[in-house]
Every structure is written in C-alpha cells, then in structure tokens.
Computed example of a mutant assay.
Amino acid sequence: MSLFNKVLASVGVGAATVDTKLHKSSYTINEMVTGVVEIVGGNTEQQIDAIYLTLYSNFIREIDDKKVNDQAALQSIKINEPFTIQANEKREIPFSMDLPSIVPVTTGHSRVWIHTGLDIKNAIDPSDKDFLDIQPTRLASAVLSAVQNLGFRLRKVDTEQAPSYLRNRTKIVQEFEFQTTNNTYRRYLDELEIVFLEQSERSVEILIQVDRRARGLGGFLSEAFNMDESFIRLTIFENDNIQAKLADAIESKMR
C-alpha cells in the first residue's frame, strides 16, 4: 500500500474499525459477559498493539455541594497479543468478562456499558461502545420485594460515588431509597436506603441506612447535626425468612 494511505490511516481516514458483538444484551450481576470483537482492516495494514475492554458505569458525585455526572471504570481486560491487520482483512477475537457484584442495576438513570478500544501505534485509536441491560440477582430482587411488603415504597434509585468508609471496597454504590407507607414505621422513620455490598447466588450483604424521624427538641438537634441516621450491615442467605429478618433489623433502630 502507498505511503499516502498509511498517512491517511494514521489520522483515522481509511483506518481499521472495531465492533464488539455481545452474545446477548441482558445480564445478571455476577454473570459472565461473552462475545467477539470484530476488527476490519482499512486501506492499509496496521499494527494492533492491544485491544482493551473496559466496563463503565455512570454515577453522581458531589463537588463543592454540587452534583455532577461522572463515569467510573469498574473493570478492564486485555484480550490479545500484538498483531498486524492487513488491508480489508476481517478478524474476530472471542472474549469473556465477569460482571463484578458492584455493577449497578440499569434502572432509573443508571447506565452500564463496555468500551472497546484498539491501541494502534502512531494513529488515532478506534473505539466502540455497547450498553448492557443489568438485572438484579434473584436474591436481591427478593430483598427489594420484602422491603416493599413491609410497607415501604421505592422512591428513587441512584448510582453515586461511594462514601469514604466504603472506597476501599468500591468506587460507586447504588442506593435504593424507600419512603415508608406503613403507619407504624411512619411514626419513627423518614426513609430507608439500601446498598448491596456483595452478591452471590446464595447470599447478599446489604447496608441499610435508617433515617429516624425527629421527635422533640433532641430529635431536631439530631437531624441538624446528621446524627439521626443509623446503619445496619446485614447478610441475608437464600434460606432466610427475608421479610422477618429485615423487620427485626429495622425495628431494632426504632427502639
């Protein structure tokens, strides 16, 4: 091929392209994502140094008391050794990637995607972006249903930057915020937030934030200094009476 074609390829004109093809688009947390990365050569041969797949999620973080949208790389893998793609050559490389338990469910404004990038020396690197539909595990779904059966309504779901005490475990957390509809709970609680810390087929570890309703002058002072929030760390197993276990934990913070 001519030098002219190589120069054009270096600035992205007539260069190699990449397209990631997933075997399916919907996945459950802890499932393995599989597919192939298809590379098609351009008008001239090019050296492909590396192909990277990176799992991303959007999230919200606070900067100077303002909420801004950001994105977090949750996992990245390299799927090849260096090779040369010839002009107009088509090559497929299979891959598999485990979904970590911290990946958020794609509900509300939460989005998850795989970014594919080719590392081509002295050239503009082509890339591809594929969105995933992430569903909760069976046990996580059972936990959320049990909370609603206790008398709470799911108000919103946000993916946010992990608080400082959790950042050694994860960059982001997905918060399920519930508002009480039960008269008994309404007397004591403002809201309930649940974060899934670890998930497997047989167990889930959750963090429950209980926001107690202010009662009297002492209660208002507690709210003023953010002392009205209590935390419960709880592991729920598949054979547990989930609703009863959650009720016991929540009610322990109402006494």
Rank of each mutant, 00 (worst) to 15 (best):
T20D: 01
F131Q: 10
N241W: 08
K21C: 03
A72L: 12
D133S: 13
A249V: 08
V7E: 07
P100T: 04
G218K: 12
Q174D: 00
T44Y: 01
R138K: 14
K245G: 10
S101D: 12
G151L: 10
T184D: 12
S164H: 07
L132K: 01
I114D: 05
Q71Y: 11
L74I: 11
S76D: 04
F220S: 11
N149H: 13
S230K: 15
K21R: 11
E177P: 05
G41D: 08
I250L: 13
K67W: 09
I134C: 05
I79T: 10
F178L: 02
R233P: 00
F152D: 01
L8F: 08
L22F: 08
L22R: 06
S76H: 04
I250S: 05
M32E: 12
A224F: 14
N168F: 10
R153M: 11
V143T: 08
Q199C: 00
F59Q: 00
A72G: 04
I60V: 13
S252C: 02
Q174T: 01
D65V: 03
L189W: 00
S26C: 04
L132Y: 03
Y165G: 00
K171R: 10
F176D: 00
L234F: 14
L150T: 05
I93N: 09
H109F: 11
T84P: 04
R213S: 09
K78I: 09
D248L: 11
E251T: 14
N58Y: 02
G41V: 06
R153K: 13
V105Y: 08
G219R: 07
T28Y: 09
R138D: 07
G219C: 06
E62D: 06
V143G: 01
Q161V: 09
T44F: 03
I39Y: 06
N58F: 03
Q179C: 05
A123C: 03
Y56R: 06
M254H: 03
D70K: 07
V36I: 12
